[in-house]
Write a protein that binds this DNA or RNA. Structure first.
Ligand SMILES: [Zn+2]
Ligand SMILES: [Zn+2]
Length: 805
DNA sequence: AGCACGCCGACT
DNA sequence: GTCGGCGTGCTC
């Protein structure tokens, strides 16, 4: 197999002889991938040795850009007069290997983009800056300066602009998070002295870094909390992420696996051993109920893969900042293995170093979010996708790829195992297990006998109304009573409401005015603590009007409820309770989410109010009551995936109450609804994922929706909706022309998007679908070429496998 | 996408 | 007279 990462660089291509004349028969042209929407490679004359996979600097129009040498060829279709030579080749960087380039080519084809548009954004920015090339690879025993926590502002204010070199150094440090001595000196000649002063002021810390230092034993924010060694489970903080918590359940310390775990581990290890053998490649779907110990399976699968010298593994998680404990678990379980993280929260410099560690084969464990699936991993032998159903694996802008799907494709090419783990698998993955395309590894038992599933109960709001029991600010009497009970026992309650702000609309009773955003077809949301109206779609903000802008009425009413309003109502209802609200607004500042979670774990909070942020990752040992305030909107959404998402979300948030529970029994989940007879709730109360999946898949099959068909979405946006619609109609007509028409393809009518206007542009979309993936792909390729040729005055893009339509 | 060139309106 | 608006066209 592909071992390009350890292979010595390929011999130089002798394009020119000693006199500078082309050698007969040698490739004279290199085709280069560039980050441009033009869907082609670009041909350049080979002026110096270059091999595919190397980064090159080339002239492009009037500027110099970095590209990837993709292939070599004898001749070009381009007018020879137009061909220009490569400016520079980065010889020191090992070439990006075939496996990575095939992955990029596949993603480009599948998502209907140019190769360069996919490949270049997958590489850290610093590697696309030739000025940085000389410094990026030299990393031996150097001083490293790290910006101290929270010191960015002090540094920003403390260094006056007139000290230009110091200012540059400060900016560089704030930008990159860490600087090595040579990088620092490049910014400021007196860097060592300056940085010593800054260290004295507490703004930076100084470390001495060995060659492979960033990879092992280096304290990330969490490692060090957990001791290494065989009894690692004993002392790891109990407040770990969901999967993490599985591994940390009390009896995990005995290191005995349940039958389900043992079977799963055995199946994955068999697949690891069979690699390259005759067995067909099959992905694993690890279906483990809450508390079944998925993380322990991951850990042992990883351990199995790493027995092979040089092998690398990739662990994908939905959002790394919500599951920071998982990093600690892996670091302490594999204290001698190099581990790096890859996610969008890393500073540029760190991102480049981590990416290079993966690319050079130094990092053996790469833990990251969706973008990590695009990293260069020359010895990749296993991918784990934790919470595989999570929508954040789908990139929602730019190249709209699904990291989970690319992980499956990537491992299929390598014939390496992939483990997709979830308590509520996506229906797409579930269906594939039914078809035998994925192998299902079921873990129905909980790893820890005293971890019990919570009781799920409904509060029928219709019934409450009939019985004339007051609902106070959206909180019913039974829910308030249950919370009061928890307060009395000193236990914690968690209220889940997927709506931030105080109220989604502000309105005038007198004339009907409502707080619409001027630039969007959405309401401005009232944010009370910030004393602002905010549009969640375009970011527009204004002060809260003291009187109605239309009629002057001073009695403006907030309509509906968000987390802030629930928090306010609770503080009045339970004045003695300590409340904490965790949502995107209360955790805007870096590190504040961690701090809030920490307070909850430390028992400094009685009632926690949160959006989906609290559903993911964190477990709260003392939470014995989870209240779901208002899930009803998702029950009747026009999006056919809304029920699937809601079920997963409620199962996940219910799991927050399912662990330590109370001495006298399981925790409780109370769901307020006006539709108590909805089958989704019935399945939820039985903890019956399989029943829910069966029923949903039947509905999808009858309606011929995914996964029983494949979809793509053409979206257009323009100043006027009519222009966007016009474009889509033209596109639809094009699809009916004889050259493109295909009876396996169907196109829906173009429609305005449900949120028509965002930030002043109006949007519409057109669904294309086909039961045949191949037919869809080839149709899209030809169609998109025609669309490009239209040169229409609208912005448009194509999304393959859209999550929301 | 950038980044040019280019051809018309209001500013020194 | 020229500064700058963004329409159209090209990048190997
Ligand atoms: Zn009014
Ligand atoms: Zn808006």
């Amino acid at each position: 197999m592909d071992r390009a990462g350890v292979r010595p660089p390929a011999p130089p291509v002798p394009a020119l002889d000693a006199d500078g004349n082309p050698v007969a028969g040698a490739p004279a042209i290199v085709r280069v991938a560039l980050d441009t929407p033009l869907p082609t490679l670009f041909d350049y004359l080979i002026a110096q040795a270059v091999v595919p996979g190397q980064l090159v600097q080339v002239p492009f129009g009037r500027r110099q850009v970095v590209g990837i040498a993709w292939e070599l060829t004898q001749r070009s279709e381009i007018d020879p007069a137009k061909l220009r030579p490569v400016t520079a080749v980065w010889h020191e960087l090992p070439p990006l290997n075939d496996e990575w380039r095939r992955l990029m080519a596949f993603a480009a084809r599948y998502y209907q983009r140019g190769i360069g548009e996919v490949a270049l954004p997958s590489i850290p920015g610093h590697l696309r800056t030739p000025l940085r090339w000389p410094r990026l690879l030299a990393q031996r025993g150097v001083q490293r300066y790290r910006l101290a926590d929270g010191a960015a502002i002090a540094l920003q204010d403390g260094v006056p602009a007139r000290l230009r070199a110091q200012r540059r150094l400060a900016d560089g440090l704030i930008d990159a998070g860490t600087l090595d001595a040579d990088e620092a000196r490049a910014l400021c000649a007196k860097a060592p002295d300056v940085l010593k002063q800054w260290a004295a002021a507490g703004w930076v810390t100084i470390e001495t870094v060995a060659v492979h230092e960033p990879l092992t034993g280096h304290a990330g924010p969490i490692s060090g909390e957990a001791p290494a060694g065989d009894d690692w489970t004993e002392d790891v903080p109990a407040h770990a992420g969901s999967a993490t918590q599985d591994a940390l359940a009390p009896d995990a310390g005995r290191r005995t696996l349940t039958t389900g775990q043992a079977d799963a581990v055995a199946a994955i290890r068999d697949a690891l051993a069979e690699r390259g053998g005759t067995a067909p490649f099959t992905p694993f779907l690890l279906h483990g109920v809450t508390g079944s110990g998925k993380t322990e399976v991951y850990l042992r699968a990883v351990a199995g893969a790493l027995t092979e010298p040089d092998a690398q593994v990739l662990i994908l998680v939905p959002e790394i900042n919500l599951t920071p404990q998982l990093e600690g678990v892996f670091r302490s379980r594999f204290p001698n293995e190099a581990l790096v993280t890859l996610h969008s929260g890393l500073a540029e410099g760190e991102r480049a170093r981590h990416w290079l560690a993966a690319h050079r084969g130094q990092a053996r464990i790469v833990l990251g979010t969706r973008l990590a699936v695009l990293a260069s991993l020359p010895h990749l032998r296993l991918i784990v996708v934790d919470e595989e159903h999570d929508p954040s694996y789908k990139q929602q802008e730019g190249l709209r790829y699904s990291a989970r799907d690319l992980a499956v494709w990537r491992t299929s090419q390598l014939e390496a195992p992939v483990v997709l783990g979830s308590a509520t698998p996506s229906l797409d993955s579930w269906r594939r297990t039914e078809q035998g395309r994925y192998v299902r590894l079921a873990m129905p038992e909980r790893a820890s006998p005293d971890a019990v599933l919570p009781r799920v109960g409904l509060i029928d709001l219709e019934n409450e109304r009939k019985r004339q029991r007051a609902v106070h600010e959206g909180l019913s009497q039974p829910l308030l009573a249950a919370m009061r009970d928890r307060l009395a026992r000193g236990e914690q309650s968690l209220l889940f409401l997927n709506r931030r702000g105080y109220a989604p609309v502000l309105s005038c009773d007198a004339c009907g005015w409502i707080s619409d955003c001027r630039r969007c077809s959405a309401h401005m949301v009232l944010h009370k603590p910030e004393r602002r109206l905010r549009c969640h779609h375009c970011g527009a903000e204004s002060r809260i009007p003291h009187a109605c802008p239309d009629c002057g009425n001073t009695d403006l009413a907030p309509l509906g409820r968000g987390t802030q309003r629930i928090e306010e109502a609770l503080s009045e209802h339970f004045p003695e309770a300590r409340l904490s609200r965790i949502d995107a607004d209360s955790t805007r500042r870096k590190g504040s989410a961690q701090a809030l979670f920490q307070q909850v774990h430390a028992g400094e909070v009685d009632i926690l109010i949160g959006t989906q942020m609290v559903a993911k990752g964190h477990d709260f040992r003392n939470v014995t009551l989870v209240g779901v305030v208002n899930p009803d909107a998702a029950l009747f959404s026009h999006d056919f995936r809304a029920a699937e998402r809601l079920f997963a979300q409620l199962m996940q948030v219910a799991g927050r109450a399912g662990r330590a529970a109370r001495a006298d029994g399981p925790g409780d989940v109370l769901i307020q609804t006006r539709y108590a007879s909805h089958p989704l709730f019935a399945a939820l109360m039985r903890h019956d994922y399989e029943g829910f999946a069966r029923q949903q898949l039947e509905e999808r099959q009858q309606a011929l929706l995914p996964p029983f068909t494949h979809q793509a979405l053409l979206r257009a946006e323009a100043r006027q909706l009519a222009q966007a619609m016009e474009f889509l109609k033209t596109a639809r007509a094009l699809a009916a022309t004889p050259e493109l028409a295909d009876e396996r393809i169907s196109l829906w009518d173009p429609v305005p998007m449900s949120m028509v206007r965002i930030a002043g542009t109006e949007r519409a979309q057109l669904v294309v679908e086909s039961p045949s993936r191949g037919a869809l792909q080839s149709f899209l390729t030809h169609w998109i070429a025609e669309l490009r040729a239209l040169r229409a005055p609208v912005r448009w893009h194509l999304e393959v496998d859209p999550l929301e339509i």
